[in-house]
């Protein structure tokens, strides 16, 4: 089990920014944090938006913090995460096309290969 976590951790650390993997990781983080906040019952804290405040300054600050965090991760999950997942798929497809075209381009630049291995051009 620890080995699996270590592998995952190593993969994440090795991951490049601006790659399909990083998009998926980002989306997954949003979803996981949102689910944790939801299970903690922070959704009810959003009642501060209609001016329903608890008594006491500390309770008000705490509820405001909970509400803002909940809304941020809710929006990130509902709006941003699906965009990132679609973007990851689009990125993957475009990267594959890019690499294939780059391969074809370099083949063209090299030109047809003669029987003795040298360029016919």
């Amino acid at each position: 089990m620890m080995g699996r976590w270590r592998t995952l951790h190593r993969r994440i650390r090795a991951m490049k920014w601006f790659s399909p993997g990083s998009f998926v990781l980002c989306a997954a983080t949003f979803v996981v944090v949102y689910l944790v906040l939801h299970l903690l019952g922070w959704r009810e804290s959003t009642s501060i938006f209609c001016g329903t405040l608890p008594e006491g300054r500390n309770a008000q600050v705490l509820q405001s913090f909970q509400a803002v965090m909940y809304v941020l991760f809710y929006m990130a999950t509902a709006v941003v995460a699906p965009i990132l997942l679609i973007a990851a798929a689009v990125f993957q497809v475009m990267a594959m096309l890019w690499i294939r075209r780059a391969g074809e381009f370099s083949m063209k630049m090299q030109g047809p290969v003669s029987k003795d291995g040298g360029s016919a051009a």
Binding site: S19, A87, V90, W98
Partner: peptide
């Protein structure tokens, strides 16, 4: 792939993702 290429590809991908997802969001 260079950082610049990946960055540009990311922007294009996110723009496409946004254009696809936002019109569908209301259906959820």
């Amino acid at each position: 792939m260079s950082f610049r290429s990946r960055f540009l590809l990311s922007l294009v991908s996110i723009a496409i993702g946004t254009a696809v997802w936002l019109p569908l969001l209301h259906l959820v």
